[in-house]
């Protein structure tokens, strides 16, 4: 395991939701926090973000959803990651997510959900503490 490698993150917007203010602010804060950050841009399908996450060998996928479609889209992304043997890519979420939905999303496999009021330093710190670089060699062997 190469602990020197910078953690790579994919910030993504899935679905038709065009509210990218939060995603862009977070992407910039994470980049300033020392991570390698890729932003998918808008209007991605779950298939598209999962494909990008795998191709780019990211360590975590940070999805921003403000449209109310989170209970459909997060489980779909997690399922696709598992199907493609990339279940070790962590999934984090942010957006307008009602409190009652948060435990259900975590149970489904989302590592953490950040809602309005979460500060940028707290999000950066969380990623530092909970998203280690993946062991890519092992992952690649598994996929072959």
């Amino acid at each position: 395991m190469n602990s020197e490698r910078k953690v790579r993150l994919l910030v993504g917007k899935v679905g038709l939701d065009g509210h990218d203010r939060g995603a862009k602010v977070i992407a910039r804060a994470l980049r300033d926090g020392g991570f390698e950050v890729i932003y998918t841009g808008l209007h991605q399908t779950p298939e598209m973000v999962v494909q990008t996450a795998i191709q780019e060998d990211v360590d975590a996928l940070c999805l921003s959803i403000l449209s109310g479609a989170h209970m459909t889209l997060f489980p779909k992304v997690l399922e696709l990651l598992r199907d493609q043997h990339a279940g070790d890519i962590k999934v984090l979420g942010g957006g307008i997510i009602p409190d009652d939905d948060i435990p259900r999303l975590k149970e489904a496999g989302v590592l953490e959900i950040f809602t309005p009021g979460a500060t940028l330093p707290s999000i950066v710190q969380f990623v530092r503490d909970h998203v280690p670089p993946r062991n890519l060699e092992e992952t690649h062997v598994q996929r072959d």
């Binding site: 679905g15 038709l16 939701d17 209007h43 449209s67 109310g68 479609a69 209970m71």
Partner: peptide, 11 residues
């Protein structure tokens, strides 16, 4: 449409 999944009538 595939992109409409989960969004119909939501917002």
């Amino acid at each position: 449409h595939p992109l409409a999944l989960g969004e119909v009538g939501k917002e």
